[in-house]
Structures are given as C-alpha cells and as structure tokens.
Write a protein that binds this DNA or RNA. Structure first.
Lengths: 244, 244
DNA sequence: ACATGCCATTGCAATATGCGCAACACATGC
DNA sequence: GCATGTGTTGCGCATATTGCAATGGCATGT
C-alpha cells in the first residue's frame, strides 16, 4: 500500500467537503506543509484539484469529468433512459434507476417528479441496502452467500420507526419480495417518502439494477403507488430484454 | 511533483475509458506489474478503483460519489434548480446551467427536453467556450485580461460551417452579446442544434454561470427560441438575485 | 513607513518508501 | 503433465519523498 497515494486520496476526500487552505490539508494529513503542497501541486497539474482565487484548494473538474465518463460506461443508463422517461411521463412521480456496482447499490439515473419536491437520492451516491426500495429489490435477488457478504458490511440503522433494523425482519421482507417480485419503501428511510421498486436482471438472469417510483406520502400514498406496480414491472422487463 | 501520485492518477484516467487488466495498467504506466498492483491495491482500498469479477480493474464508486458531492458544493445548483425546472415546465426544451469553474465552463445541471432527443452536453464536462451559447455568454462578461487568458488556451475549432473560428469573428460576436445581453448558438457546435443563453452574475456583478434553452433546429428553429429570451433573462436575473 | 506574523514555496540532505526482481501460486490450453 | 501467462508477495536497495530551514510575499497593527 502506497502511503503517498493514500495521502493524495485523503486530500481529495477532504476537499470534497469544502475548499481548504494548505495548512488545513497539512493538518488533516499530519504532514509538513511542504509535503502537502507538493501533493496538491501534483493533483492540480492533473486536474484532480484546483486552486481558488483566494488561495484555497478545491476538487478539480477533471475528477468530475472522469466520474461522469465512468457513469456513462456503466451499461444501463443510455439503454434504460427512454424507458425511464416513458414511465415518468405516464405517472409524473420521481423515477430512480440504481445499479449494483461491486458491493453497493448506486443511483445512476433519476427523473425528478413534476411535483417540485427534491428527493434525498443523489446520482453517484449509494442507496441504503436495507432501507430503500431499490436496495431491497436487489438484495432479494442475490444468492444467499452474496447476500450475507453484502449485509456483513452494513449496519441496519433505524432511520424511522418503519425501518427494518434486524436481520430477521429484513430476511422476512426479502422473502416476501421474492414471492411477489417487487419491493416497497414504506417510509423506511424518511417518514414522508414511499416507493415501489422492481429488480432488473441481465440476460443470464443475474440481478444488475432496480427501478423505482417514489413519491411523498402526502402526494401519493403507498396504496396508490402499488397500483403502478404492473407498469413498473413491465418497464423493468423491457429494460431486461434490451440488455440482451 | 510526485511521480507516485501521477501514476495513480494515470491509472484512474485509463480505467475511466474502460476496465483494464493488471498487465494493461502496467504497460500504460511503463512500470513493473507488481508496482501497478500495489498502486491499484491502494486505490481499491479507498474506493477510487474496484476489482471486477473477471479480475479487471475499473473506476470505483467513491470517486463518483466525491464528484457528485463536489458538484453539489458548487453554489448554484440547489438554488438554481427550481428556476430551471420552472423554465423547463413552461417551454419543454432542454435547459442547461453551466458554471465558470477555474478556466472552464462546466455543465452543472441539465433538464432534458420532453422531445426525447439526447443532447451532446454532459454534466461534469466542459462546454465549448467559443462554440456554445453558455460559453459565449460567459466570455462576453469577462474583463478583457481574463478573456485573453482563457482564450489563449483554446483552439477555435470549426465544428460546423457556422462556428466562429477566428478571434476577430468571436470578438465581434461577444460585442453583440454584451450589447443585447444574451447569446445564441446558431448551429455552431452541431449543425442541427441551436440555443439561446443568458449570463448569470453574482452579487458583486461577477459572471459565474450561464443558462440556456436548447433545441433541435427541426423542432424549434432559432427564431422561435429567440422569442423565449425575455423569459430566459428573467430566470437568469431571478437566480442572480438569490445568489445574494 | 515600518515591524511583525503568517502563509506559501523552494533547495537540500537524510531516510523511509516505493520499486523491480525473483519466486511462487493458480488458471488455462495443449 | 507440461508450458505459458497472469496475479501476487517478500525482500533488498536505490531513489523519490520528506521535513527543515530559509526565503519571499502579503496582511495587519502601530
């Protein structure tokens, strides 16, 4: 393991929160200011960091571009996008596409509702595995060993009174999801938000993603979203078919 | 300049294109396989890279999350988003917000048109300074010294017959934009795409961003988009006011 | 105008680290 | 069973990285 690279990464992590002075960066790394400066100079030469007018250092645009390029190389978004837009057009609620990438479920696309309210989900960020519809939809389709592996690194945090915060409760829910083929978020991450979600498989039947229709409870309660499940499942199947 | 950090960055750059084997990474860096492996191990421990099931290496989700987090810390998006949605709701065309970040104009938000056609612009990626509406809107508001500085690093590539590919032609256009307060893209980057764009200033009057309404020529020719300029300018002003 | 303190930066020598090499383990193809 | 290629690790060494001291610039206070 390279400590020089670790330091560079720690610099980037610390800049992501907010721009920082050279002294702050040196303090965070526990190194001399000249060491921090040289690492920053290297990051800035490559575009991974940049220097603001007031002397502070910030994350650079090249890192942002690389992240976007990477998101674009994940298979699903271009292919899924027309389906998501069509689903969004028919219902107006927020639509999410989340993809299983390594050990995380990452939101890779999102169509905001016409309701004008911003959801917590952010493209590029992981979805909660145990407290989101897309997370549970994906978990329900994993082989037992892989499911154990993923959950071993997850703390079943109780975000609301509805959150399934024991492994037993989660397993029971996953069994229900397997049986009926779709998942729900019944105010499990945020009290006032609910959704229905469906898994998306590839041509070999492996789970790769999930799709969800999300709304504020005051706008569309869960019972209303459940009525949309047939359309959601049809959309998920259409995406699966196009995966080839 | 740290060669170890440079190597790590080169690894990330090469993975952004497509996942690669250890041997490929070592070849690209010109180092021994064990060197490449240790650098990859460090990147993977931090989430900047990840190991695929078939042994190849890819960009990691932590880098994607940091990029998204960085985008979110740029002032404008959360504040501008409701204005962009409202503008989009009224007209249905593609709306872009691009921000001046360092020496680049970066697309930071984008609402796709209801027309179902995907534009070339990508969030996180730079806009052409000389061949895009947002680029020219921003250039037109810069002090002369800063304008020269930015353009010195730009090749005025002729993308279409309409591209302004000489400094004289560009300066004349920027003078026109300054006079009337808004810019156009008249098929300058792509033949079949046009837009109108307006600059967004902060409370000290400095240019920070630009906003555009973009459409395919066959759907809405430039003359039709020009009719929307009053609404575009009003939206840009509303965003400026909220900047404080 | 001057003194002071703080921050950013660089040259240099010491050393801690990153590096390549050799060897090993494993998978694959013949 | 053998050859080949790839991924991986231990180890010794050369060098790249590091901290220190010095320098310069800038802001602040008197």
């Amino acid at each position: 393991m390279s400590q020089t690279v670790q330091r560079a990464i720690l610099i980037i992590e610390s800049l992501a929160a907010r721009p920082r002075t050279l002294g702050e960066v040196a303090d965070i790394l526990g190194v001399h200011r000249s060491t921090a400066l040289r690492l920053l100079q290297t990051l800035e030469a490559s575009g991974f960091a940049r220097r603001l007018g007031d002397g502070r250092h910030a994350v650079g645009t090249r890192l942002i571009a690389i992240a976007q390029q990477t998101l674009e190389t994940l298979d699903l978004r271009p292919l899924a996008s027309p389906h998501l837009r069509a689903l969004h057009g028919r219902h107006g609620h927020t639509i999410h596409l989340a993809q299983l990438i390594g050990d995380e479920v990452i939101y890779v696309d999102k169509l905001e509702s016409t309701e004008g309210v911003r959801m917590y989900s952010r493209i590029g960020r992981p979805a909660s595995l145990h407290a989101s519809g897309v997370g549970k939809a994906i978990l329900s389709c994993l082989p037992a060993g892989r499911l154990d592996e993923l959950l071993s690194g997850v703390e079943l945090t109780a975000h609301t009174a509805n959150t399934l915060s024991t492994r037993q409760a989660l397993d029971a829910e996953l069994a229900t999801i397997r049986e009926r083929g779709w998942a729900v978020d019944d105010g499990e991450f945020e009290d006032f938000t609910n959704c229905v979600a469906a898994p998306v498989r590839n041509s070999t039947g492996d789970i790769v993603a999930a799709l969800s229709i999300t709304s504020l409870r005051v706008i569309a309660p869960l019972t209303e979203l459940v009525d949309l499940v047939p359309d959601l499942l049809a959309t998920a199947r259409a995406i699966s078919r196009e995966l080839g």
